[in-house]
């Protein structure tokens, strides 16, 4: 596929990255080359093949429901770039000022 700048901008936004104009064009070229390479997959007949993730054995480890000690009170916030009154602090979200998306 031809990767347009609009798609790069969209992906950049989804990934919360910020590229300068030059960086974006370099990124577009790099990604274009990689997409041209991986296009070989498009030619394969994969219609009846299950995705690998579905072929993994199920089960695995489950936890028993026992409460264990959390990190010490301050440790959660130790590395926080900004904290106040025991909370992490960030600037306001201008867009989507809604509480999460559970």
């Amino acid at each position: 596929m031809e990767l347009g700048e609009d798609v790069v901008r969209h992906v950049e936004s989804l990934a919360r990255l910020e590229l300068t104009g030059d960086e974006r064009e370099a990124m577009r070229r790099d990604l274009q080359r990689i997409l041209d390479y991986v296009a070989e997959l498009a030619a394969l007949d994969l219609a009846d093949v299950p995705p690998f993730a579905e072929t993994r054995p199920g089960g695995g480890v489950l936890r028993e429901d026992a409460a264990r000690p959390s990190l010490p009170a301050s440790a959660a916030l130790d590395g926080a770039p900004a904290a106040a009154a025991g909370h992490f602090v960030v600037p306001p979200a201008i867009a989507a000022a809604e509480d999460g998306d559970a």
């Binding site: 936890r63 429901d65 026992a66 409460a67 264990r68 000690p69 959390s70 009170a73 959660a76 916030l77 009154a85 025991g86 909370h87 992490f88």
Partner: peptide, 19 residues
């Protein structure tokens, strides 16, 4: 549950933030 979905932290309402 007593503990969270994917770790052993206690499930409880209220209390000091981020503890």
């Amino acid at each position: 549950t007593r503990s969270k979905a994917f770790c052993g932290c206690e499930v409880r309402f209220g209390g000091e933030a981020n503890t």
